[in-house]
Amino acid sequence: MGLTSQSSGLNVLKKEFNLTSGYNNPVIALAGNPNTGKSTVFNELTGLKQHTGNWPGKTVIQAKGYFSHQGQQFMLVDLPGTYSLLANSTEELIARDFICFADPTVTIVVVDSTNLERNLNLVLQIMELTDNVILCLNLIDEAKRKGIEINIEHLQSELKIPVIPTIARDGYGITALKETVFRVNSGEIKIKPYKIKYSPEVENKVIELEETLEKRIGHLKNFINFHWLALRLLEGDQTILYSLEKYFVDYFPSKILSGESGVQASGVR
């Protein structure tokens, strides 16, 4: 059977993101809309001084880098800039699959402070998928120049995730960002992000489908968020089944096998 480490879904992911070494370090994902200064944040965090142009789609080769804080090393993966995770484009698919299946320890979402509304749309979607989310409120100097003042406390209390204001090109806020990543990783900060509540017509259907999923494939509960999966199936996402096959089943064949026996056991009960 070809389920050696070469063919496993994890390896596909590792290969796609060029994560060949250093897998022992906690993996930090860097997500965000295009043109939010995400690449600059990446450079500032890792000390890589790559050139970053000002045009959408410049992060075509997923970059990875390392940074250390208080003796702990982290691996940082730069995801393609996207407006959403609904998998309408290859870039969105890559970003979604990484957050969903590579299970990063922390996901930093870089946000353009001058355009909070559009950026929060992505933040809400990421918080639906994973818990350890940190908001990097970038370009606050530009926002100030445009007369935009953001109530960080309020934003934090609404989203229930840490919000760190930064001016990445000047290096401002980068240490605070590292410190927060460190403390989330060590468990000192526990994040329970706000999960969006949809309109009743959506929520009712989700709950219904979620229950069915639990009944039918309940043994997978620890590996995928059923609420999220139900939403994807309901909105007619065609890519999720393909991604499940690509990363998930190949990745955990043994877990599914043991899970299956668990289902049988519960069936007996």
Partner: peptide, 11 residues
Amino acid sequence: SQKRRRLLDLG
């Protein structure tokens, strides 16, 4: 279908 999702997604 896809075009609709894309436009919606842009806001």
